[in-house]
């Protein structure tokens, strides 16, 4: 079984986010980069599924040349292959991203890499558009289910579970399929130093992305870092001296006692 995990390079933001002067992006001068937590789990899932069922785990991203850093993280986590759809520094919107990934998957298929399972994060940590996986599935005419926190594959069928209020919805989907996952589906491994060194020497397959545009336009105008309001917290006291005041708040303000 061959599994593809699609990821996105995002800045590792700290407590306060600073924007560039043109308000088009985050000022990353002093920031490192990472991938969204859901996507780290997508890679781990791809590796675990291929460890269990055989086949190859492939990690793919659409992004700048520097995104090879995140692909190599995937390789260090024991993914077998990596593909960069080299998109430059401009941010691609969700429709263009989905179109480029779908075209990339078709190209990889033409080159002999067919996938039984395409994994995505449920939403990216930065843009959170909640749609790339679904649009890729539609482009490739594959079944798709989102927000999955448990996945088993048996005889070409994915048994996927999604948390809902009071329990879990269970889906049974014939492969090939697209599944978007959430953090908690597994515990991503820490790559060993040795694995990281090896990943540095591995080849990354580089391709030129192509995207079709649909009807309508969505244009990012600018970003805004909202001012954080001054603290208005009422200090109820220090240490156990505050307990009486806390009880008072719970009793009279919130009425939970």
């Amino acid at each position: 079984m061959n599994v593809l995990a699609c990821i996105k390079r995002v800045p590792n933001t700290g407590a306060k986010i600073v924007l560039t002067d043109d308000e088009q992006r985050i000022d990353t001068t002093n920031l490192g980069f990472t991938m969204s937590p859901h996507e780290e789990c997508a890679i781990e899932e791809a590796v675990q599924q291929t460890e269990a069922h055989g086949g190859s785990a492939h990690v793919l991203t659409l992004g700048p040349e520097e995104a090879t850093e995140q692909l190599r993280t995937g390789l260090a986590m024991q993914a077998d292959e990596a593909t960069l759809l080299e998109a430059g520094d401009e941010e691609w919107g969700p429709r263009a991203t989905a179109s480029a990934i779908a075209n990339g998957v078709r190209e990889l298929g033409d080159d002999g890499a067919e996938f039984d399972l395409l994994l995505f994060g449920n939403e990216s940590a930065d843009a959170a558009n909640y749609q790339v996986g679904t649009r890729v599935a539609a482009e490739l005419d594959l079944p798709c289910v989102t927000g999955i926190k448990s996945l088993d594959v048996e005889d070409g069928t994915a048994i996927a579970r999604r948390e809902v209020s009071g329990g879990e919805e269970v889906y049974e989907i014939a492969l090939p399929a697209v599944i978007t996952v959430k953090e908690g589906i597994n515990e991503p491994r820490y790559a060993s130093m040795r694995a990281k060194m090896q990943a540095r020497r591995q080849d990354v397959d580089r391709r030129e992305p192509t995207a079709d545009t649909g009807a309508g336009t969505y244009e990012k105008v600018r970003l805004e870092a909202p001012e954080t309001a001054e603290s208005e917290a009422e200090i109820l006291g220090d240490g156990t001296d505050a307990v009486a005041n806390v009880v008072d708040v719970l009793e009279s303000e919130v009425e939970v006692i």
Binding site: T228, S231, A233, E234, G239, V246, V247
Partner: peptide, 28 residues
């Protein structure tokens, strides 16, 4: 940061405050 964003705050060690709070609520 949590203090900046809270409506009410208690400055101190939860390991001391929470047991005391539990006792007080139970006795109330």
């Amino acid at each position: 940061a949590i203090i900046q964003k809270a409506d009410y705050a208690v400055i101190g060690d939860l390991h001391e405050i929470v047991p005391e709070l539990n006792d007080t609520i139970r006795e109330a």
